[in-house]
């Protein structure tokens, strides 16, 4: 465990990556305009990035590919809830319920 002053230094180091990445082009401003083709390509960045964070959690179990796992089943429920319902809490409640029932109720 990183502790004390070192922990605060570590937090500052992690925080500096927030400013470095998010601030990069916004802070340097107009001198950093990207070519239009690149700008268009970058419109796909958020969808690709979110999915690149989501899918490994849904499809991997302890680092190995395993499509038959309770998190994927819960993920399907989350996706359905998010598509069908406008209630912002439903995906959270539905997904967690399915995951907990499968894991605790069925020991999956």
């Amino acid at each position: 465990m990183v502790e004390g002053v070192w922990l605060w230094l570590t937090l500052l180091a992690i925080g500096s990556t927030t400013i470095l990445t998010r601030g990069s082009f916004v802070i340097s401003g107009e001198g950093a305009r990207l070519p239009p083709a690149l700008q268009r390509a970058l419109r796909y960045a958020p969808a690709a990035a979110l999915s690149a964070l989501i899918m490994p959690d849904l499809l991997l179990d302890a680092g190995a590919f395993d499509p038959a796992n309770p998190k994927l089943a819960a993920g399907v429920v989350v996706a359905l809830a998010a598509v069908r319902s406008r209630n912002p809490w439903l995906p959270f409640i539905g997904g967690m319920c399915v995951l907990l029932v499968l894991r605790k109720g069925f020991g999956w």
Partner: peptide
């Protein structure tokens, strides 16, 4: 883990054209 924000930052930069330095720093954060 934060690298995706460089892409967002580059895409958004034109919207901060002419804004003050402190405003752009806050916007980045």
């Amino acid at each position: 883990l934060n690298l995706r924000f460089v892409i967002f930052s580059a895409a958004l930069a034109p919207a901060f054209h002419g804004a003050s330095w402190s405003r752009r720093l806050l916007s980045g954060y």
